[in-house]
């Protein structure tokens, strides 16, 4: 069973699906939080991801120049996180806040413009071409390989994938703790429930909005860096490419539902990878070229048959 089916399925489809799902989940959290609390679809979210990845790459290069070696991307991303959050907060302060009481479509358009502005700036600074993020071939983690081999289930998982999966789990646990056990997290859920009631309750809605950008920005940079670690290259359109699956994940899980976004992200990640598995016959069920079509199909089906999403989110 393991020889014929499991080895190939787990190592080449399931694990990559899980990794992709983790990345989508992190990205979708920011989208669903922005939707829940600020009530608009933020088109610029993918650009925060992408900018975070470019900043991380820059710090990797800086460490090579000054220290003589490449730091681990998860260390190099720390300053990148602060810069990206600062960027997200500034964009909110100067581009979105003036439209806070305007019709939603205006702020959606503002975010669309922001998306183009950020991407163009990144292209001006780092150029429009693909850049190698981490060099070399990722070998399977030898400890996990030996350990699983001793149980007759050889797992070939590169260390980068272990970092991504474990990192996502840790972020999710911290995020869950924040939403359920901290004052600001509860206030985020309260504002998401009803901004008007939050206001007359005396909750500082602007403070909650800032917290939203900080959490969303952090998750976005982590998603961007994880994506870069996974594919080992970065380019200025990577954020935009992720936007559709992330929106699909947010809607699939139920808009405004952070844990729905996580669930949705995992489902979309798995669906994209597993759609290329040779379920019938020898060839892939769907050519990998159609991967992004899978997310789009799920998005359309959900909007038609269950627009509230898996966890009953908001419907507009």
């Amino acid at each position: 069973m393991w020889e014929n089916f499991g080895f190939e399925f787990v190592n080449y489809y399931f694990i990559p699906g899980l990794v992709l799902g983790c990345i989508y989940a992190l990205g979708a959290i920011g989208i669903t939080l922005t939707f829940g609390i600020l009530r608009f679809a933020n088109f610029a979210h993918g650009e925060i991801m992408m900018t975070g990845a470019f900043l991380t790459w820059t710090f990797l290069e800086i460490s090579n120049i000054f220290l003589g070696f490449y730091m681990h991307p998860l260390i190099a991303c720390t300053p990148a996180i602060f810069i990206a959050i600062f960027l997200a907060l500034s964009v909110d302060r100067y581009f979105y806040k003036p439209f806070r009481d305007s019709p939603t479509i205006i702020i959606v358009m503002a975010s669309f413009g922001m998306m183009l502005i950020i991407r163009s700036l990144v292209q001006v600074i780092w150029g429009p071409n693909q850049i190698t993020f981490v060099k070399g071939i990722a070998k399977p983690n030898s400890y996990l390989k030996d350990f699983s081999s001793s149980m007759d289930m050889m797992l070939l998982v590169p260390s980068k994938h272990l970092f991504i999966i474990l990192g996502t789990i840790i972020i999710m646990l911290a995020f869950n703790y924040m939403l359920t056990s901290t004052r600001i997290g509860k206030a985020m859920r309260a504002v998401s429930d009803s901004p008007d009631l939050a206001k007359v309750t005396g909750i500082d809605v602007e403070q909650v909005i800032r917290a939203t950008w900080i959490v969303g920005g952090f998750c976005a940079v982590m998603a961007g860096v994880f994506m870069a670690m996974d594919t080992q290259f970065i380019m200025s359109t990577m954020g935009f490419r992720m936007l559709l699956p992330m929106f699909a994940a947010a809607i699939l899980g139920g808009i405004g539902r952070p844990f729905g976004a996580v669930l949705g992200g995992l489902v979309i990640g798995f669906a994209e990878e597993l759609s290329a598995y040779p379920w019938f016959g020898n060839g892939p069920l769907l050519s990998p070229g159609y991967k992004s079509g899978v997310a789009f199909s799920i998005l359309v089906l959900m909007l038609v048959f269950r627009p509230s999403g898996i966890l009953k989110g908001r419907v507009f």
Binding site: K186, A190, S192, D193, S194, A198, T201
Partner: peptide
């Protein structure tokens, strides 16, 4: 629309004390 529906009773009261 005078309670936060997805928050628990206690969390609602905590928000009242914001």
């Amino acid at each position: 629309n005078n309670v936060f529906v997805s928050l628990s009773v206690e969390e609602n009261l905590e928000m009242g004390a914001w």
